[in-house]
């Protein structure tokens, strides 16, 4: 259906969607960003860096009382959040993200990406969008306008073509600084090894990586019962099979695929987040951040 669009090329529905996303992201961010909610230390950049002497005007809650007990002087903790971070959201825009229809993988990844973008920009970090597949990419930026440009870019995009995630990640790796955060939103349905190589390389540059692995419910549980022609939207390949006959083998393959990534990510210090479409983006992000918080506290 042809949608009504404004001068920026955004339809009212998309603008509303972006606004809703912004709202949702802001609600998440408000709970995460320091000094704004009950958990001021929650956020992506909560890594402790160093102590500095207390100056009047500093928030007394940041005084490290243990150091005061040892030295008799007031020091406050200085966190990494106080520094800018370059965040690269690598969104899989390939045709494989079409699975699951309008509210399927693509929308899921879209919302997650949008929410993350908002979150980081709210923190004052620079957020860039990288298409793992056809489509333009946006270099990291921090302005509010950048946020809307980014959201609009997301909104206008439709999944198509092949992904080439490994290549995309390799391309990013060359541009990364010391404080970079790479977020991959993808189904990773490519040859795993090149992707892993690229992830290793990025990790070698000191960048932190989070993978939101987006799979549809069908891909996760393979509920098909009637013989059908299964078509790969990227390659166009198809297989006519009786699903009941191959389900067990498929589930075994999927399990192996996921275990492979889990093992790799665990070893490489990469967060591998199950972002199956049946779960809401909020749930996925909150669960991940809580997990991350618990890990930091340990």
């Amino acid at each position: 259906m042809e949608q009504q669009r404004n001068s920026n090329g955004l339809s009212p529905e998309l603008i509303e969607k972006v606004a809703r996303l912004e709202l949702r992201a802001r609600m998440i961010a408000d709970g995460l960003l320091s000094g704004m909610h009950r958990s001021p230390e929650r956020g992506f950049n909560i890594e402790f860096l160093e102590h500095r002497e207390y100056y009047p005007g500093d928030d007394p809650r940041h005084i490290d009382w243990k150091v005061f007990a040892k030295t008799g002087r007031y020091f406050v903790k200085q966190h990494e959040e106080e520094r800018n971070l370059n965040v690269h959201i690598v969104l899989d825009t390939s045709a494989s993200m079409t699975a699951g229809g309008e509210s399927g993988k693509w929308d899921h990844g879209f919302v997650i990406s949008a929410a993350l973008s908002y979150l980081f920009l709210k923190q004052g970090d620079a957020v860039g969008l990288v298409s793992a597949g056809p489509g333009e990419s946006l270099d990291p930026g921090t302005s509010r306008n950048h946020l809307y440009r980014l959201l609009a870019t997301l909104a206008k995009r439709r999944p198509e073509g092949r992904a080439g995630i490994a290549g995309t990640l390799t391309g990013i790796g060359d541009k990364l600084g010391r404080r970079s955060f790479v977020i991959v939103v993808s189904d990773l349905l490519e040859e795993p090894e090149p992707i892993r190589e690229s992830l290793r390389a990025i990790r070698g540059r000191g960048a932190e990586i989070v993978i939101f692995h987006v799979l549809s419910s069908d891909e996760k549980s393979f509920p098909f019962t009637k013989a059908a022609r299964f078509v790969d939207p990227e390659s166009g390949k198809d297989l006519t099979i009786d699903p009941t006959a191959v389900r067990a083998a498929y589930m075994k393959n999927l399990s192996g695929f996921l275990e492979g990534y889990n093992a790799f990510c665990s070893g490489a210090g990469i967060d591998f987040v199950d972002a199956e479409v049946s779960r809401s983006p909020e749930e996925i992000l909150l669960e991940y951040l809580e997990k991350r918080e618990r890990r930091k506290r340990r």
Binding site: D187, D218, E219, A227, A228, R229, K237, L239, T240, V246
Partner: peptide, 12 residues
């Protein structure tokens, strides 16, 4: 026979 778009074809 019906047609199913299935990106995870590689797993089949």
């Amino acid at each position: 026979v019906s047609r199913v778009v299935f990106p995870a074809l590689m797993l089949l």
